[in-house]
Structures are given as C-alpha cells and as structure tokens.
Amino acid sequence: MDADQLEWNRTLREQWEVHWDNQLRGRLDGLTDDEYFWSPVPDAWNVRPRGSSTAPVQAGAGDFTIDYAVPGPGPAAFTTIAWRLGHVIVGVLAARNAAHFGAPAASYETWTYAGNAAAALDQLDTQLGVWLAGVRNLGDAGLRLPVGPKEPYPEASMADLVLHIHRELIHHLSEVCLLRDLYLHTQPTANGATR
C-alpha cells in the first residue's frame, strides 16, 4: 500500500484503541477505593481530602486535591493509582481536549478530582471519548496542522501530539496496572486472605 493511500488518522487512533480495548481497560475493571488510594511507600503523592495533604502544593477545586510541587522534588515523588489517574485525566487528556477540541478549560488547579475509584474511571472514560472524537474529526489533513502556542512545541504537528498523548496513556495506565498487581500480591486482604 502506498503511504499516500494509508488512512493515517485511523492508524493513529488504532494505536491507542487496540491497546485500550485489548490490554488496558479490562485491567482497570473492579478497581477498589482501597487500591485507588493505596500508598505502597511513605509520603507517596496521592489524591486526598482537601486539607489533609502535606505536599507543597494541593491542587484542585473540589473536596479532593492532588499532591504537587513546583519545582518537583528530586528524586521524583512516588505516586499512587489515584494520582496517576488524576494526571492522565487532567494533564494528559482534559487540558488537551480543552486546548484543541473545544472542551471546557481544565487544569490541575481547577479540576474536581474523583473521591473514589469508580468516579475516576468515569472521568477517564469521558475524557478518552472526547479525545478520540477530537482526533477522529481532525481527519488526515488536520493531523498535518501545527499544534500552535497552547503546546510547548508549537511547530509540532497534531500527529506528533497524538502520538505523544498515546505514549503517555499507555505508559501511565500500564503503571496503574502494575500497581494493581503489586497491591494484589502485597495486601493480604486483597487476595481473599484475612489479616
């Protein structure tokens, strides 16, 4: 097949959709609130009830905030499932949906973070739906357009941004799956045993 005949938009969407449908989404089913908030190490960054964090920055508009610092600590803080989902939902998806696809403005500071696992997964599904619809509506021609001043590299193409976002999603959501495995194998009550 000639590269000019390839449906680049479909190909880029499938990069994410195949991974999501066949590897990731099923691994998130049944995520419990205990897993969502579980901290495998002391002082891990998390999503917490407002006023309960000791992180340098507690960002968020609702009853829960996400731990943060500017500049970030060295070494980087370990982050929980709740934190990683918050990062993906807001920093990876919602902010880009707002910048490029007409979704409401979103930032770490203004987001209403989920206070439980089910609500976080609902937010994730919603933002993914907006993202994929936006990418689909770009068509092949829209993938060639520059991302513009709302991104750190304004001259990069929308195709570059799509590839970057998909790498971020695969990377961080795979980390979430690994943390679920760690929780299952280190928490006696997680695998049916009693403490």
Rank of each mutant, 00 (worst) to 15 (best):
A159Y: 03
S107C: 06
H171I: 07
A114K: 02
V130Y: 02
A103Y: 07
N191A: 10
A133L: 14
G148V: 09
A98R: 11
I170D: 11
D160E: 09
E168L: 00
L121F: 04
H100A: 08
E151P: 01
A141W: 10
K150D: 12
Y113N: 08
L143Q: 12
H185T: 03
L173F: 01
P149F: 09
L128I: 13
Y183P: 03
L121M: 00
L163P: 07
G192A: 14
G134A: 01
G115P: 04
G142F: 04
A114C: 00
P104D: 00
A159C: 11
S107Y: 10
A114G: 00
Y153R: 14
G139R: 15
Y113T: 06
V176Q: 03
S174E: 04
A141N: 14
Q123S: 12
G129I: 02
T189S: 14
V147Y: 11
H172Q: 12
H172V: 06
F101N: 07
T186L: 01
A98Q: 09
G148Q: 13
D125H: 05
Y183C: 05
R167I: 00
R136A: 14
R144F: 01
L143S: 09
T186I: 06
S174M: 11
L132D: 11
E175N: 07
V176L: 03
P152F: 06
A141I: 13
A98S: 11
A117G: 08
G139P: 04
Q123N: 12
F101D: 07
I165Q: 03
G102N: 01
A193F: 13
E175M: 04
V162D: 10
Y113E: 10
H164M: 10
T112Q: 13
S107H: 06
A105K: 06
D122A: 07
L161A: 12
N191S: 15
A156Y: 04
A133E: 14
L182H: 12
P149N: 13
D181L: 05
A118V: 03
F101G: 09
C177A: 13
Q127L: 11
A105H: 01
D160G: 12
D160T: 13
Y153M: 08
A114Q: 05
